[in-house]
Amino acid sequence: MATENLVYERPEAFTEMPTHYCPGCTHGVAHRLVAEVLEEMGVVNKTIGVAPVGCAVFAYNYFDTDFVEAPHGRAPAMATGIKRVLPDRVVFTYQGDGDLASIGMGEIVHAAARGENITVIFINNANYGMTGGQMAPTTLPGMKTTSSPNGRDVETQGYPIKMSEMLSTLEGTGYCVRRSLHDPKNIRLAKKAIRTAFETQVRGLGFAMVELLSTCPTNWGMTPVNSLKFVEEHMIPAFPLGDYKISDAIKQIKI
């Protein structure tokens, strides 16, 4: 096919491996956006990714970059070490909500407080996807999961944790925004945010995190199309989209 006709093709930063994600899971969209951004910035050959524990545990199979796999929640700590030893590399972590907001809460907060020059992609799908849909710190009040069969009761199980709001209060955080992956417009905005987060790191402007509202059709018990509607109708009111912290130096970045 003539290349002048080409509008879009699979990013070259991907390997040929098909993903293991369930049909319609927006993990794939988030992977694709990261791959496209790395490709556009021309940093694929000097990128080191840090995979979490969770559905994205096999991310190293899909990106054509160097990758390491961190123990539960310890991706920011591992990324800190890599970035300090190899400061010329682009280091990013890709974490879910069970990994980042639950067991890895300590690591992410301290990495942000230290202003580690790393990029964090945070996938918020309101449950533990890989282990079978248990309640996560980000589960919505009243939402049914396998470990909260009557819905999350805020009297005994507390309220969802809003990571972007929380981390934006720390001095070391340079860039902290929340985006969603539920329609083409928001996917485009998410890509721009991911680009800015990587530019933040390349320029050494501090800790950058992009929180992406994502779906889990299998564990929510919905079709992929209905789970996008669930994100729009229920998750966005609970986790408002927006820019929580953009430091002045990052506002100057023109993409």
Binding site: M1, E4, N5, L6, V7, Y8, E9, R10, P11, F14, P18, T19, Y21, P23, G24, C25, T26, H27, G28, V29, R32, A35, D183, P184, I187, R188
Partner: peptide, 19 residues
């Protein structure tokens, strides 16, 4: 328009347009 490719979670779609 490539909107199918933008929402595709598996990067399965290649889009062409007549020049």
């Amino acid at each position: 328009c490539a909107i199918c490719a933008i929402v595709c979670p598996d990067a399965a779609i290649t889009v062409f347009r007549e020049t």
